[in-house]
Design a binder for these strands. Structure first.
Length: 267
DNA sequence: ATGTCGTGGACGCCACGA
């Protein structure tokens, strides 16, 4: 079985590209982030035509996460239990944004995650990001404690570069989000809880990234960030045979700014 | 091959988020 995660940066603007990629990549489960549409706007039919069921949550033009599967799609869950909400307006009610969806696919509990960006270190969105990660970690640790043998894959755009090797120039990120000690600690807490980065052993750095900003010629200059991850429970990690980052998919007109990340599982 | 991109609202650009 093959499982992938991909921040597609609009499923509508890139439907042909995503379908083409699915058809040739032999992936059984694709977790998508930043679909940027409401449920009613999602191109479900295009996925169904090539044999994939899709679960999606999208509330507006922002965020949006989905799981497409050709090996079953059971027990779909919109958001995790303690997922925090957010609002820019302190007077308004907090909204639980479309940033997490879970489903069981071929025996694996897959979570498609779009971690808040954080914007700036002094922005309320940054505290929201840290809290969001902490709450997800608490819940995920609970899932694992409840059933230590469960195959769980926490996949998606984590918006954190865990080490200096995961960015092209640490100096550029001084005082910026994605690399702060607090964000890195929030990410490392998942590892401490028993989830492993199952991709890194098969895609060693330095200079190995999953995201390149559209601006500043970042892709041709090979100036990217490694912020998309597949974290697996012990039972999941034990099945991983290989992994890859499909850098080719970042090329050409109409590419997402993120590349797909794929793991191949054995029996 | 790559010198931003995507979406929505009131446009034919601007605001916003990334």
């Amino acid at each position: 079985m093959r499982i992938a995660t991909w921040n597609v940066n609009s499923v509508r603007a890139r439907t042909d590209r995503i379908i083409d990629w699915l058809e040739r990549s032999d992936v059984d489960v694709l977790a998508m982030q930043e679909t940027k549409c409401k449920d009613a706007q999602f191109p479900f039919e295009r996925f169904q035509e090539i044999g994939y069921e899709v679960a999606h949550v999208g509330l507006s033009q922002w965020n949006g996460v989905a799981i497409a599967s050709r090996v079953g799609l059971e027990d779909v869950q919109i958001g995790f239990e303690d997922q925090p909400g957010f609002t820019k307006d302190p007077e308004a009610e907090q909204i639980r944004e479309a940033r997490a969806i879970g489903a069981t696919c071929g025996g694996v509990r897959v979570w498609s995650l779009y971690v808040p960006n954080g914007r700036e270190l002094d922005d309320p969105h940054y505290e929201y990001k840290l809290n969001w990660l902490a709450k997800l970690r608490d819940d995920a640790e609970g899932w694992l404690k409840k059933n230590p043998d469960q195959q769980i894959a926490l996949v998606g755009d984590w918006n954190v570069a865990p080490t200096d090797e995961d960015i092209w120039d640490p100096a550029v990120f001084e005082g910026k989000t994605h690399t702060s000690p607090a964000e890195r600690a929030a990410f490392d807490a998942f590892i401490t809880s028993g989830f492993a980065d199952v991709v890194r052993p098969h895609t060693p750095g330095p200079g190995v990234y999953t995201y390149w900003d559209y601006t500043q010629l970042r892709f041709p200059k090979k100036q990217g960030m490694r912020i998309d991850f597949i974290l697996g429970s012990p039972a999941f990690a034990a099945r991983v045979e290989s992994a890859e980052i499909d850098r080719e998919e970042r090329k050409g007109k109409g590419a997402s700014d993120h590349a797909p990340v794929i793991v191949t599982l054995g029996a």
